[in-house]
Design a protein around this nucleic acid. Structure first.
Lengths: 224, 224
DNA sequence: GTCTATAATAGGATAGAC
DNA sequence: GTCTATCCTATTATAGAC
């Protein structure tokens, strides 16, 4: 996509700008974000942003492109021979992990879709739909073979996306309700196990994790 | 909250403005929305918006207040004597219905939280937390009585919120992937049944709906 | 490659005529 | 109660000095 040879300085600055832009776009949306605010956060003069990315629209698209690359790597190749329980668990584990490691990417993507996906319509219509179709085809074979309950595969994918991304997108709400400052490693494992257990069992599969009462008990909300 | 006697004109205009504001705020976020854009959509001159709501911040808060009232009515009173399966099903049914009838309210609320909930921090910390605590207390009793699996009640609530609101917030993505223009009544029932089935069964409860294969089969994604 | 200065426009808010 | 005209600030983007 880039036509010029990226030098060392350019490479480093572009990365700094992209990171700053991602944060500002999450905080204030595309329209609500000023190039000045991005420049301040990046520690560069405003004109440099325009020098590297031409205009705000280009910069936003660059950030989104970076994010969609992340999403594309999830559950890349599965087949009907694989074990449904293991695949679904791995799907859930990866998505919870992404919510933990890249919360801002998830948030920005969510905002873009909430606002009607004006910049990534085509990505959804082509790449994403292709991804969904390739997975549902496998799910359908599992159902036909009686390996799992006849849960509509498309909605099953929606359910897993929704549940796992919730911990990134609604981070503020989740943490506030749990009276916590931030997620920790053990929270992520707890969430993975809980979500995996409910969904696998809900699909008529054998859950991979036993429910440890200490792990699952409602000690999550502490009285202030 | 209002100090003046609301006349007929005022009442009608305020409603028109609130509706227009909700749409614009969803499309462009708080910062990205101009009072001019709201005025245009409402079919009123810009100065009238300021006349009725003083400033943009007040207007935004009024929209959010209207939305939180909707949310407060969900699952208002339950007790340990109630049947877990029925309560959870009703919870899911109501939330899916709200996603269908008030998608913009859900979207705006989601955006506010994604951006760090700067305007509704206190609402979450007080009202919402109180609501969650009153529900988890009942769930805990069910678990203690062996009526359902020991699923962490707080995360169970998150899971139901996430799954049901997804159909409002990510409407664009869901519809695009399903190659549909908009939801229909039967979609809503299909979604309710599917989500309810997986979650109830996943919690060790008897699902209320039998899985109709015709209902659950993967005919959702049509080839273009 | 970097930054200051500036043009051109759009924004929130208000005064004051009707 | 309604709306036009206007003030002032912030915004995107660029020109041009370094």
């Amino acid at each position: 996509m880039k036509k010029y040879k990226p030098g060392k300085i350019r490479e480093r600055n572009e990365e700094v700008i992209l990171k700053a832009a991602e944060q500002e776009f999450v905080l204030n949306g595309f329209k609500g974000t000023s190039v000045q605010a991005i420049a301040n956060r990046a520690g560069l003069p405003k004109a440099n942003i325009h020098y590297y990315f031409k205009n705000k629209n280009n910069l936003y698209k660059a950030v989104l492109e970076y994010i969609t690359q992340l999403w594309n790597e999830v559950l890349s190749d599965i087949s009907a021979d694989d074990d449904p329980a293991e695949v679904l668990h791995e799907f859930i584990r990866t998505k919870v992990e992404l919510s933990y490691t890249h919360p801002r990417a998830s948030k920005l993507f969510a905002m873009e879709i909430i606002q009607g996906a004006p910049h990534i319509r085509e990505y959804i219509r082509m790449d994403m739909r292709q991804w969904v179709r390739s997975k549902t085809r496998v799910f359908d074979e599992w159902i036909a073979a009686g390996k799992m309950d006849p849960i509509d595969p498309v909605h099953l994918i929606f359910m897993i996306w929704a549940t796992t991304q919730h911990y990134a997108d609604f981070e503020t709400q989740v943490l506030t309700l749990m009276n916590r400052a931030e997620y920790e490693r053990e929270d992520i494992e707890h969430i993975t196990n809980m979500v995996s257990h409910v969904i696998l069992k809900g699909c008529g599969l054998q859950p991979l994790q036993a429910l440890a009462t200490s792990d699952m008990a409602s000690s999550t909300v502490t009285t202030p």
